[in-house]
Simulated assay, not measured.
Amino acid sequence: MIRSMTAALLQSDLPFPVRRGKVRDVYDLGENLLIVATDRISAFDCIMPNGIPDKGRILTALSLFWFAMFKDIENHLIATEVADYPAALKPFADQLSGRSMLVKKASVIQIECVARGYLAGSGWKEYQKSQTVCGVSLPWGLRQCDQIPDPIFTPATKEESGHDINIDFAETVRRIGQPLADELRCRTLSIYTRAADYARGRGVIIADTKFEFGQMPDGRLILVDEILTPDSSRFWPADKYQSGRDQESFDKQFVRNWLEGQPWDKTPPAPALPEEVVAGTRAKYAEAYERLTGREW
């Protein structure tokens, strides 16, 4: 059962230095950071003028679920309840409750760590041209959305604006060095495999996902940002999966599909999303949360 919709929070407003991404507002508190997941939604690298109510809370709750599942892997979390935040943040509970995380400051590694278990998106496009994905050779004859025999690590650059750019492993090594590149590949594929096995048992295929890692001052690696959400992953309903075609999904494909049918050139400003697209997208995100966690939203 899904709760009734609340108003979308498009931007938080706290009196601290802030960097605003497509979805998250990141406040610098000095020693630590505060990450606020708004209800903004982007598509084709444009932020939509209206948001998806509860989206930020769903993303935060799902990330916290996975962080708890992978508690053997150090992450950036310090606190998630406003009551446990510094006193200066408590007056802003209405903006922060359920959609924020107080986190450790880490030096973010400038590589998007992508794991792919199925041939979709940019991976499928590259495979059709070269039978490779980010330089990884794959068997001949695979079809769109086929499962890849073994999950692959397909890194990308982290771009301040526009699309991240897929790179091969050799380029990753050139940018960050062999030992760190090896460690990122190992951790990425390990977490993805564990998560994909769990999700399949809940009726969800995780076709691909991306992780971000940071380094603490002593050099140790930790997981940062969100993990395994509909914004950072392709989630497909397992009972409707069929290779050789596009899949139904639990992500913002619902928004992309509507935009593709509009007379819009994919440059700002984007058109406002109609009420039925907003409600349908919210329902997709909430269903992903409920299937994966077994909890009602």
Rank of each mutant, 00 (worst) to 15 (best):
R57I: 02
I206R: 02
A87T: 05
E260A: 11
L89V: 13
Q144S: 15
E275R: 08
Q247I: 07
T38N: 13
E276M: 07
R282Q: 14
V173K: 12
P269Y: 13
P263L: 15
K210L: 14
L96H: 05
T132L: 00
G214W: 01
T229M: 04
L142R: 03
M1H: 15
E226F: 04
I2D: 12
G51M: 14
D239M: 01
A7V: 03
L228Y: 04
T293W: 10
T60H: 06
T80Q: 05
Y289K: 07
V114F: 01
E260S: 09
S243K: 08
Y241Q: 06
K240P: 03
D72A: 15
S63K: 02
T229L: 06
N32I: 02
R202M: 12
L292R: 01
E290H: 01
A37N: 14
T6C: 01
S107D: 15
A196E: 13
E74C: 10
V26P: 10
L228G: 03
A120M: 14
D225L: 07
Y127Q: 02
I191M: 11
A199I: 02
C186W: 03
T281S: 11
R282V: 06
P139V: 02
I41E: 08
P49Y: 09
Q215I: 05
K158I: 08
A286G: 00
D197T: 13
T229K: 06
T80V: 10
Q242S: 14
G162T: 15
L89I: 11
M69S: 07
T132D: 02
D239C: 01
Y289N: 10
P53N: 09
R175M: 08
I167N: 11
A207W: 01
I109D: 04
N50H: 00
K210T: 09
T80A: 10
P155M: 04
E226C: 01
K125R: 15
Q262E: 07
I73W: 14
C134P: 00
D208C: 11
P49F: 06
V36R: 00
F254W: 12
G135F: 09
A199S: 14
I109L: 12
F213V: 09
D225Y: 08
N166S: 02
I47S: 09
L29C: 10
V278H: 05
P149M: 08
K71T: 05
I205R: 01
S42W: 13
A181P: 00
I58W: 07
E183M: 06
V204L: 08
S233Q: 10
T172H: 00
T154P: 02
W264P: 11
W124T: 14
L273H: 02
I111R: 06
A61Q: 13
Q242L: 12
A170C: 13
F153E: 05
I167R: 11
F44K: 13
L77W: 00
D28E: 12
M69E: 15
F70S: 09
A83Y: 00
D225V: 10
R20Q: 15
